[in-house]
Design a protein around this nucleic acid. Structure first.
Lengths: 139, 139
DNA sequence: TGTAATTGCTATAGCGACTAGAGCTTCAAG
DNA sequence: CTTGAAGCTCTAGTCGCTATAGCAATTACA
């Protein structure tokens, strides 16, 4: 019913300094302290931190997480904002995948352009790194 | 035959402060200066900056670019290092794609979990963001 | 109860790769 | 010759942590 910051860390997989950082940034509320000034958390904090962790794992930036937390404090509001955040993040992830796929294609070409042992002067890899014109597509 | 930093910027698409930053970091050599202390570049600098730009566009971190530049200064060395850098980057890109694909799947599920108008209390999107247990796979 | 190991505290600085701003000087065009 | 754009240096900010220093509190075990 009452965890140290280390307990919280072990249970969520979020590192101790990161937990303190989240508190400073206002994602976690400042908890009560022990007589010796150490943080003492309750299970609601554990839940909150788990929420944050999952969101971070999904790639949400901290302002988006803040918005979601604010939203969850107002149970009667419509949940459009949550939907929009999820959709925006999905779009962002898809864009990043598309970009990385292009990079993958170029890097595959570059990495296989230099067969066998060469010296630097004749190295196609170095040439390919230097010359955007050799690329198959924009990236 | 002799460019200002702005010329260099326009020709390569690298922003002016970024060019100065590359110089500070040793990726670009410090160029000669005009009488009024402004940087004057030659076409070799243009080439070098183009190389750096292309590498950055391909996602190479600056230390890898430094290694490639060092390598290109020693034309007689074997080009293994260049090959390794290209392969490492290709591997890294593929890993990131794999990770983002998992995120994409989860976010798709989350973003479509809440049909129609709800209030926050009944919002499946918020629930899904909070609960890793609902995920279809690890991510 | 003593003490040693572990965990906790605050505050500050560093990471990577820029980007923004302040306050000044130089340059190019008309 | 003036005006406005472009250049200069230096510092600080971005994001999401992570590391370090130098302490204080807690816990485990003898």
């Amino acid at each position: 019913m009452d965890f140290s910051i280390g307990d919280l860390s072990r249970r969520t997989g979020v590192k101790v300094p990161t937990i303190r950082y989240y508190e400073k940034e206002g994602l976690l509320e400042a908890p009560l302290r022990s007589e010796g000034n150490q943080r003492r958390y309750r299970s609601s904090d554990l839940e909150r931190l788990g929420f944050i962790k999952h969101c971070r794992d999904l790639g949400l930036p901290m302002p988006a997480i803040r918005d979601l937390i604010d939203l969850s404090q107002h149970p009667d509001k419509p949940c459009e904002t949550a939907n929009r955040i999820a959709e925006d993040q999905l779009k962002a992830v898809r864009q990043r995948i598309a970009h990385l796929r292009k990079l993958e294609a170029e890097l595959k070409r570059i990495a296989t352009s230099c067969e066998g042992d060469h010296t630097v002067t004749e190295c196609n890899v170095l040439k390919a790194f230097g010359d955007h014109g050799l690329c198959l597509q924009e990236h």
